[in-house]
């Protein structure tokens, strides 16, 4: 499943999709950046409520497929531009992390 397909299936809003055809192989939920760096796997969907500029660097370095902002969290225009420039996909949803993870889990089976 690609990030673009994920957006359609879960009705996620697009924040920026510079690499929408990127394949997804798993998911990881956490808001502590170092924890994510250490444990998220490449090609994971990273579900978080953090929205500062540092999430872009973490997603880029940990090589996650996309950042999924939960709970209706918004991204500043400035951070959105950085994500776009670095080729980091960011999508969002009004739903809480648990609900998103649960839906995603069924889709990934």
């Amino acid at each position: 499943m690609t990030v673009k397909e994920l957006c359609e299936k879960m009705a996620l809003s697009t924040v920026t999709l510079p690499d929408g055809d990127r394949e997804i192989h798993g998911a990881y939920c956490c808001d502590l950046l170092s924890w994510v760096m250490g444990r998220a796997k490449a090609d994971d969907v990273w579900i978080t409520i953090m929205s500062n500029a540092n999430i872009v660097a973490v997603a880029s370095l940990a090589d996650t497929a996309c950042i999924l902002l939960a709970e209706g969290v918004e991204l500043d225009d400035n951070v959105r531009s950085i994500a776009e420039a670095k080729g980091v996909n960011v999508v969002r949803s009004e739903k809480p992390i648990f609900e998103l993870a649960s839906e995603l889990s069924s889709l990934l089976k």
């Binding site: 808001d31 502590l32 950046l33 170092s34 760096m37 250490g38 953090m50 540092n54």
Partner: peptide
Amino acid sequence: SLGFGAGMGLPNMKRY
């Protein structure tokens, strides 16, 4: 509050 300070910095450096 920025999401840092998890106490994983040095352990991650060693792990990787």
